[in-house]
Design a protein around this nucleic acid. Structure first.
Lengths: 342, 342
DNA sequence: ATGAAAGCGCTAACAG
DNA sequence: CTGTTAGCGCTTTCAT
């Protein structure tokens, strides 16, 4: 009869049952060379019998690395970020890594992440999504020698996945202006002061660039902020609708805000797209059911691409092409149309 | 001038600069008793100067626990699960825990999670969301002595948060039948064979119970499966619409499937709610913008409640009331109405 | 209140 | 190809 509250088997137990030394067990189990096939087999069998699994902590302490990566995102409960995490996690899990996640809604949390979670022995590598860091933090990250990749961190000095957000802004105006709209509103981002990432700015810049290049004016009264949420989009739309000269079309820089905008418009009796055209960005999972015209940016590739980049670095590979670019394209559906008669 | 590639400070460095032994440093920094206030102060200061942080691996190896918890969900990129993870992560982070996540789309992944990620030294505690486990796995979980809580794991033997999914099914039928519908369809779950959790069954059981108690018949031709996705909901609706006697109302057991169902119906010229009433479950973030009638189950509380339960256990507290119940209620909006004339 | 010393379980030279 | 032997950095008795 076996031990009741049997303690976990250690490498020594395996060594004894297999009749070899702990060093050999370690080598055999990790697939290192210089182990006789027959020995390896014997070791593997003993390990299975004892249901042995190397203690990750002991192993990391001794080896200096340990099989976990960290992912940081501004927030979780946002379609884009959960999609990215899902995609990255799948790749990491397949590669045998455990994944640590952190939401970084404030600068304090970001500091905690950098100074504790990610770079103090917890992670072998880290991926930062749409997060701006301070100079001091960047130094720590660099100095820690922990491979780091970014998504939307172009210019941060780290390799990563880049999206042409300026092009996204231009595409939106092109689509809407080509339809005949002359008064185009913008529902921009800003996740509060915490997240100074460049996405909102870049999309807005593209939006204004294209407006300018078409000789259209940029009116601040046509811009509102929606905080990347459905509710924020709804509020932004409401304020836009109340303006002196309401827009005949609105570009929301995320689908979630576009949903909110459409909901708010319809609630006030404004028909979409007859009275108002609305488009978003992401090609969110419910965009099709909603009939939303949007700009696809291959969101499903962001996470896996970043993960793959990090795994390459973890495997000692030099990042030959450190930047992975994704493409963007307008997906026309039913929320945009030619402007109706006034 | 300081070291260029300065290695991390160790507890010994702190001991030296503070002029005490490592044991004292350990005690002082962890707030243990039997340390003179003045000594503690000195130690803390030295630690700050050196930017010292205990290596979690060494510390865990020595102490047997280490400040991380694991969360397992079937998938990530689903509104409900990302909401749960977000809520739980926030609470854990605040309590100083790091969080490990795993998506468990298949039985193999579940086995990996149980045998490696969660119960082999990585986590101090774990929360399993809507996951059914096998007898053997349950034994490992119990034997590992790692506190575990569940969400939707009623009957698994672990404490956790419970939702009355049977009531949800009944509420749906009540609402629809009260409106006058006599032919009510169901878009059920099934995440593939992998996830045999009870949510789909319970909601369906409630649905059928209420139908029966009202003397209405249960027709399998009025039931379709939507895999909890927008697209699956769309396909399910399409097949329901093609049936000989299409329903005048449909209950989708998740909002995402309801969105897909509505999209599919409208695409075929079926008006909602004039020709067809549709309701879902969750009160998804875009439900309001969509005008979707749904059943709220306080999703935002699931994650925090579970996290709090686990933290209690981690702090040695006996779980006085191990089950945290959330409430459910119909939220009536614009996708359900009295059945139109035939 | 503090220090000395023995590990925690594993990996990584270094010998053989 | 395999065994011996130091540690990895921290916690925890046990003394003092």
């Amino acid at each position: 009869m076996t031990n009741f509250a049997s303690r976990r088997a250690t490498i020594e137990d395996v060594a004894v049952t297999a009749g070899v030394s702990v060093a050999t067990v370690s080598r055999a189990l990790r697939g290192l060379p210089n182990v006789a096939p027959s020995t390896r087999q014997r070791v593997v069998r003993s390990a299975q019998e004892l249901n042995y699994r190397a203690d990750p902590n002991a192993s990391r302490l001794a080896a200096g690395r340990g099989g976990a990566v960290a992912i940081a995102v501004p927030v979780f409960n946002s379609w884009y970020f959960s999609e990215v995490v899902a995609g990255a996690e799948a790749v990491f899990a397949e590669a045998g890594y455990n994944v640590l996640i952190s939401a970084i809604p404030t600068p304090e949390r970001r500091s905690l992440f950098v100074n504790q979670t990610a770079y103090q022995g917890w992670a072998d590598g880290v991926v930062m999504v749409e997060l701006a860091m301070e100079e001091a933090e960047r130094d720590i990250m660099l100095r820690a020698g922990v491979p780091t990749v970014t998504i939307g961190g172009h210019g941060s000095g780290f390799p990563g996945v880049v999206v042409d957000n300026v092009a996204i802004g231009r595409f939106a105006v092109s689509h809407l202006a080509d339809l005949g709209h002359e008064c185009i509103g913008l529902i921009a981002g800003e996740h509060g002061e915490a997240l100074s990432f460049s996405v909102p700015d870049d999309r807005r810049r593209g939006f204004e660039q294209e407006l300018r290049s078409r000789g259209m004016s940029i009116e601040s009264s046509l811009q509102a902020v929606g905080n990347f949420s459905v509710e924020g989009g709804s509020e932004a739309m409401t304020s836009l609708l109340r303006a002196a000269n309401p827009p005949s079309a609105v570009f929301a820089i995320s689908d979630e805000m576009a949903f909110g905008a459409i909901g708010a418009a319809r609630a006030r009796g404004v028909r979409v797209p007859e009275d108002l055209s609305v488009m978003g960005v992401d090609d969110h999972e419910v965009a099709e059911a909603f009939g939303l015209t949007t700009i696809c940016q291959e969101v499903d590739r962001h996470g896996p691409l970043a993960a793959r980049l990090l795994l390459d670095a973890l495997n000692g590979g030099v990042l030959v092409e450190p930047m992975a670019k994704v493409s963007t394209a307008v997906v026309e559906r039913a929320t945009t149309a030619r402007p109706g008669p006034r």
